[in-house]
Amino acid sequence: MRIYKVIAEIDWVVNFKKEFNINNVQFYSEESKMYAKVEFQETDFRNAQFKSFNLFQSACGALSHLERYIIKFRIVRVHEIDSMGEKQIPIQNITASRHIEKEIDTEVLNKAKEIQNLASKYPVLSQYLDFMLYSDYYTWITLYKVYELINRDVGNVKNIGWITKKQRDRFTNTANNPAASGFGSRHAVSSTEPPSEPMDIDEAADFIKGLVDKWLNYYQQKED
């Protein structure tokens, strides 16, 4: 096993005065740029690169769930550390997307750590954080994928009391009907009438976030 330090450049419109850490992913600024770094043992630099990508992805995905903005990160350096010092290794270009626009307080950081810990134990939550990194997350198609993911995982979310029938029908009927959701609809045509009270995309995002919060709490209770 070898020791590696991996650094990612963060494209993040955020105001913070000091560095912070989310489960060993350290965020910091240097010469007016933002970075994140991790350090760990791994068998070779390629595995180190991809392991670090997953760590950056889950940390940024957790923050993005909490803040509802997009962050971009790009791995820029991989260093191998030994008794002689650090040696930089050429890397493949790996990128992902996210963006946040407000100062990150302690409560949010603690919640992000909690989400990242849960995702490390439950692959289905890690899959959700992957969705959070899609540039088209806030669209009917991707929001509906999250809805389907939760339904498949815990069963019918209406039947277990997480949402009402009216909420479900407004969301699904709007998402599936181009007369309600336009070109962003999941379907090009629909044989049914659009809902009398369609959701707009912001309300749909709030609806899914509320559902995800219940889902995360469901898994947190398993840990308590």
Rank of each mutant, 00 (worst) to 15 (best):
W140Q: 00
Y35K: 04
G182C: 05
D44V: 06
T106D: 10
W162Q: 03
D153H: 00
Y35F: 15
K18D: 10
K72D: 08
L211P: 02
E114R: 15
I115K: 02
R74E: 14
I94K: 01
H99R: 10
E114A: 10
L55V: 15
T172A: 05
R168I: 03
F183T: 15
Y128L: 08
G155E: 09
S190M: 07
Q167Y: 04
Q220G: 01
Y35E: 04
K214H: 04
L211G: 02
K5G: 00
L109M: 12
Q127W: 08
N54S: 12
M199I: 01
L109E: 13
R98L: 10
S64D: 09
V157K: 03
E103I: 11
S52D: 04
Y134Q: 14
K214E: 05
N23E: 14
I208H: 05
Y144V: 02
Q92L: 15
E148L: 12
R77V: 12
K113G: 15
E197N: 13
P178W: 06
K111D: 09
R46Q: 09
P194Q: 01
F50S: 08
L216P: 03
V146D: 00
T172K: 08
I81G: 00
V78K: 00
V189S: 07
E114G: 10
P198V: 01
K209T: 03
S32M: 13
C60D: 07
L118D: 03
N24I: 00
I141L: 06
E107Q: 12
E30Y: 15
R74H: 09
Q220A: 07
A188T: 13
T174I: 02
N54I: 11
P195H: 01
E203R: 13
F27L: 11
Q221E: 15
A205L: 11
S32C: 11
Q116S: 10
I115G: 04
F27C: 09
I3L: 09
Y122V: 00
L125T: 03
Q41M: 13
V146Q: 00
G210Q: 11
Q57R: 15
P178I: 03
V13S: 08
E39S: 12
L66V: 04
V189T: 10
K102P: 04
K214Q: 08
R74G: 05
A119C: 11
A175V: 02
